[in-house]
Design a protein around this nucleic acid. Structure first.
Lengths: 255, 255
DNA sequence: GCTACTCGTTCGAATAACGGGAACAGGTTT
DNA sequence: AAACCTGTTCCCGTTATTCGAACGAGTAGC
């Protein structure tokens, strides 16, 4: 981290990815538009875009370039190769079938939570989460479950790096309050989310730990606040969840 | 296409993606390994890798770099933004539930077929296909259904570009034979795959066409050859499939 | 315990490449 | 028909990329 200031990035590569980013966020753009947006010469953008196209990273549709499914190929590859995915997927499916709610498998990467797999129950809410989505760890149940089970210094550095941005009015934005919450989570072994990421949505999340006890991911069950409350939320679902995560941990250790 | 020879790519960007490719295929690699593999100086690779890491494209685990879920994020974004996905997904799920076989939604991109969504039936075979996978159009039912419903000149240029590589001993590798097959597909409105991509697997595929009648994708039903045969394969499944694809086409037109 | 190998990292200097701007070709609008 | 838009091409100057060698650190060998 201290070497960050010393490290000078390859700017040509940065502009290439800047182009990809703009193309993604605009859902397709032309050379002129990209050049204007990124303050580059048209010829420069053109050369980059042609390079990316020849690699199959961008595809051309008339005069606009779009992100290609190259990313889907690589993305799914990443997911399938992740140690957790194979083991967790069947359990996530099971939980969704048993609870009829939305169940997510989340991993930690670079200090953020990444939703790598989600299973629908029959009544599952349309959460705003999407496969591949990155969310700040303090903003949701699975994330807090992960955060609580990381080494103390990593927790500090993550909170330092990203801060405590709010998602809803109920998101925990006070550092001390979060520390208390994490302590409770460690004691209980699971975390709750009371409308902290989406108003009207409650969730329970439990960590998946490796041999050294550090969380590498988590599983969460989410549903409407008026259905996920009382004993169901505080007892039944955590029980089910812990059963699943414990099993995943055991299977992980033997793989 | 003719300008391909004239176009000189941005080499720095190429090396960056070369690095990403090697990291993907080796499932994680270090600086020295990458430098040796790509015949570059260690310092060059180091700078690239640091740049990619700071962007969150690669993640570091000890001394090896891995592909990150950044790709999953972008990949799923691409899929979700595709016009076909929203409309086709529910139909694919329906077909899988009705037939109990593996059902795929495939789109055409850059002259290849990309599997963007697959639904499992209760008895579905473990096909080798994976979300994001790119396959030559002539090698499978959905692909041939697409190929048959493209403008004549595009068909020619795709076949010229990619040739007719074989996947199994039953893959169609003769151009004339393929043309005859495509003609039959156009007459019937759907395509069969008789162990042309995987031995022991049969499939039916039907195109999804836009307003001008050109295929933009296809849906296919695949299953074991000994179950998918006779009337089921030649009549029942095509009927079900065409019902679904027609509906998708109508919904597409009104979206 | 020391040595010898690996790994990632840093530095400076030379050259190759990237980026810019102006001019071109093809289409569509005014 | 002319004025605009688009993507595309060219060449030149300068910068930023690349290389190779040297460094620090950690690990395996004996």
């Amino acid at each position: 981290m201290a070497s960050d200031s010393r490290h000078r990035p390859v700017e040509t590569v940065e502009t290439a990815f800047d182009i990809v980013d703009v193309v993604k966020h605009t859902d397709g753009a032309g050379v002129t538009e990209l050049a204007a947006e990124l303050d580059l010469a048209k010829s420069t953008v053109h050369r980059h875009v042609k390079t990316l196209e020849s690699r199959g990273i961008l595809v051309r549709e008339g005069d606009t370039y779009r992100i290609s499914t190259w990313f889907l190929d690589y993305g799914i590859h990443v997911r399938n190769r992740h140690r957790l995915f194979d083991v967790a997927k069947p359990k996530v499916d099971e939980l969704a079938a048993e609870t009829d709610e939305k169940v997510w498998c989340v991993i930690e990467e670079h200090g953020m939570g990444v939703h790598i797999y989600g299973a629908e129950g029959r009544h599952s809410v349309k959460t705003h989460a999407r496969i591949g989505q990155r969310t700040h760890l303090h903003q949701f149940a699975a994330g807090k479950a992960i955060l609580a089970h990381l080494p103390e210094d990593r927790i500090e550095s993550i909170l330092d790096d990203y801060g405590l941005a709010s998602q809803t009015e109920r998101t925990i934005t006070d550092r001390e309050e979060l520390q208390n919450n994490l302590e409770t989570i460690r004691e209980q072994g699971y975390a709750f989310n009371h409308e902290e990421s989406v108003i009207g949505v409650h969730a329970v999340g439990a960590p998946i730990r490796n041999e050294s006890g550090n969380a590498i991911g988590a599983i969460s069950i989410a549903g409407p606040a008026n259905r996920l409350r009382g004993d169901l939320l505080t007892d039944e679902l955590p029980d089910l969840l812990l059963g699943a995560t414990n099993e995943v941990e055991v299977n992980l250790a033997h793989s």
